[in-house]
Nucleic acid binder design. Structure first.
Lengths: 254, 254
DNA sequence: CTCTACCATTTGTCTGACAAATTAGGGAAT
DNA sequence: ATTCCCTAATTTGTCAGACAAATGGTAGAG
């Protein structure tokens, strides 16, 4: 392969430029909060026009890699990527894959169960009192009969996110982000009609007590029961969707 | 909160437009492979200029949500998001977080161990012969003394990715993508000098045999030993970095 | 010394234009 | 009649210049 021919320039200037800058950030040649040259200067450096530079910067802005401000002290700055930003990116990607049917609900439920079981073991050792209190607060919320279904689901997500957080491992939290923030709502949307909210709150409380006592095995058992119940309800929902005698399930498409 | 004041238009037109289109895709109002209007028509619809539309489209292109082609049958099309694209996004985000020091190496190692242990149990039941063969091939590669360190690490990553794949759960695979594709190379870069390659290949083979026999517990045990050894070597590397008597570790910054 | 008004700088957006790519269709040659 | 090539049309990619909006600094007035 002695062929290069000057690097195949047929891929779009903006794309190449954005990748150059992205690599510079990833490799640390551009420090966080460092201000990069003005758009005009960048255009001169790369020998392209300003709109092209702007398109390249937009690509990076879409990934939250840079931020821009107007004014004399303004300009384009390298962003410190926050965990929440990363979580959002992962959640979006996961949501897309779900909506395209790349995952089955059974896949999602299983992945969630396995990851959360891991978290239960770790959280039993490492949970803080604050995290315990946050879980208790969600349980209290979930007991409110006036709570809307959507809010109940949101509370459910927050509860389980707190569980993962209580495992005290940011890397694990990152890995779980996609499954929790995006996949669980998908599950909820399908089957929340069939979920007994009091039962859910009860199981949550059982889990909470186990973590309070730092009893990892009890926590795992509680979670397993919870997930098994969820799976039963999911199968029930699936059966009804397969043979929809009564329009019990509201159509997803409005 | 009776305040809205027409929705705060101070966020950038391109951003708003890209979010509108993104939501349309996520909610299924735009089908995959559907062609959306030409840039000119979009500009007219949104009452903005074409560069603004282009900036919005660039943001979406950066997320692989759309693709563009020139020509009469060209235009902008909705992309079917592939798992590899998603994996790439997650890996990039993870790499960024690692380079910013959001995760410690201990976090990463633990997350990897926990997730892979889960996969071991599932893979013992579900692994296909093809996956088994792929693992064997990697082991054969890893036994080659002429293999470069970088290639050895790459083979290591592929081996473990196959393990996750053998668990037969796409959602779990997605969750593990960040930890495997991006975090493990980071680990390898730090400590690969200290890893006994024959030892690694041996442990891999032990894992391979356990999966071949569909023995989940043996697979978990093999992986645990492997990860514990890795952790020991990591601590050794860390100690050397803390007190660098000899320049055994090449600087990362060249 | 403090506050206000102006100003310079930088990004955000617009207008208009041309270049490049790619397909459709017509015309010519076999 | 069929096949090949060439031209034209359409759409994105890039460029150039300009003005608007925001924002922080600074000079001047009280």
């Amino acid at each position: 392969m002695a062929i290069d021919y000057q690097g195949l320039v047929t891929q779009g200037l903006a794309r190449q430029i954005s990748e150059k800058i992205r690599d510079a950030i990833l490799e640390g040649r551009l420090q966080v909060h460092e201000r990069l040259p003005t758009e005009e200067e960048l255009a001169a450096r790369f020998s392209v026009s300003r709109p092209t530079i702007r398109e390249a910067l937009k690509r990076l802005a879409a990934q939250n890699l840079i931020r821009s401000r107007r004014g004399p002290t303004g300009g384009t700055f390298v962003n410190r990527p926050s965990r929440d930003d990363a979580r959002g990116l992962v959640a979006t990607a996961a949501a897309l894959l779900v909506s395209m049917g790349e995952f089955t609900l059974a896949d999602i439920a299983e992945a969630r169960q396995q990851i959360e079981i891991v978290c239960c073991g770790l959280a039993a050792q490492r949970r803080t009192d604050e995290q315990l209190a946050a879980m208790a607060e969600e349980i209290r919320l979930q007991r409110d009969p006036a709570l809307l279904d959507a809010d109940f689901c949101a509370s459910d997500v927050r509860f389980h996110r707190t569980l993962v957080e209580a495992a005290g491992n940011p890397a694990l939290e990152f890995a779980a982000a996609g499954v929790l923030d995006s996949l669980q709502p998908a599950v909820n949307l399908v089957i929340f009609r069939f979920r007994d909210r009091r039962q859910v709150a009860l199981q949550h409380e059982r889990l909470h007590r186990a973590l309070e006592a730092r009893n990892g095995e009890a926590a795992c058992a509680a979670l397993t029961d919870y997930m098994n119940a969820l799976r039963r309800q999911y199968r029930k929902a699936q059966a009804l969707r397969a043979a929809p005698v009564a329009p019990a399930v509201g159509g997803v498409r409005g």
